[in-house]
Amino acid sequence: MIKFFCFFLLLVSSLQIANAQRQKYNFNSNWKVLTGDDSTAINNNYNDASWKNVTLPYAWNEDDAFKKDIVDLRTGIAWYRKHFKLPAAAKAQKIFIEFEGIRQAGEFYVNGKYIGLHENGVMAFGFDITDVVNFGNSDNVIAVRIDNSWDYREKATNSKFQWEDKNFNANYGGISKNVFLHITPKVYQTLPLYAGLQTTGVYIYADNYSIKEKLATIHAESEVKNESGQPQQVVYRVAVRDNSGKLVKTFTRDKINLAPGETKIITASSLVNDLNFWSWGYGYLYNVQTSLLVNNKPVDIVNTTTGFRKTEFKDGMIYLNDRVMMVHG
Rank of each mutant, 00 (worst) to 15 (best):
K3A: 12
L9D: 02
S14F: 05
Q16R: 08
I17E: 07
A18G: 13
A18S: 07
N19H: 14
Q23T: 09
K24E: 00
K24L: 08
K24V: 12
N30C: 00
V33T: 12
G36M: 07
T40D: 14
A41T: 12
I42N: 04
N45R: 11
T55E: 05
F66E: 10
D69W: 11
G76N: 10
K82R: 04
A88G: 08
A89T: 15
Q93P: 00
F96N: 08
I97W: 02
I97C: 08
G101E: 04
G101H: 05
V110K: 10
Y114C: 08
G116L: 14
L117W: 12
V122K: 08
A124Q: 03
F125C: 03
F135Y: 03
G136V: 00
N140M: 07
A143P: 07
R153D: 04
N158M: 07
Q162F: 08
F168G: 07
Y172Q: 04
K177W: 13
Y188P: 11
Q189G: 01
T190I: 10
T190F: 04
G201Y: 09
V202S: 15
S210M: 02
K212H: 03
E213V: 00
K214P: 07
I218N: 02
H219T: 01
S228P: 10
Q232G: 09
V234C: 04
K249W: 00
T250D: 02
T250L: 09
I256Y: 13
G261T: 01
E262M: 12
T263S: 15
T267V: 15
L271H: 06
L271S: 12
N273I: 09
D274L: 08
G283E: 06
Q289E: 14
S291G: 06
L292R: 11
L293H: 05
D300V: 11
N303D: 15
N303L: 14
R309K: 07
D315C: 01
I318Y: 01
L320C: 02
L320G: 00
N321G: 00
R323F: 03
G329E: 09
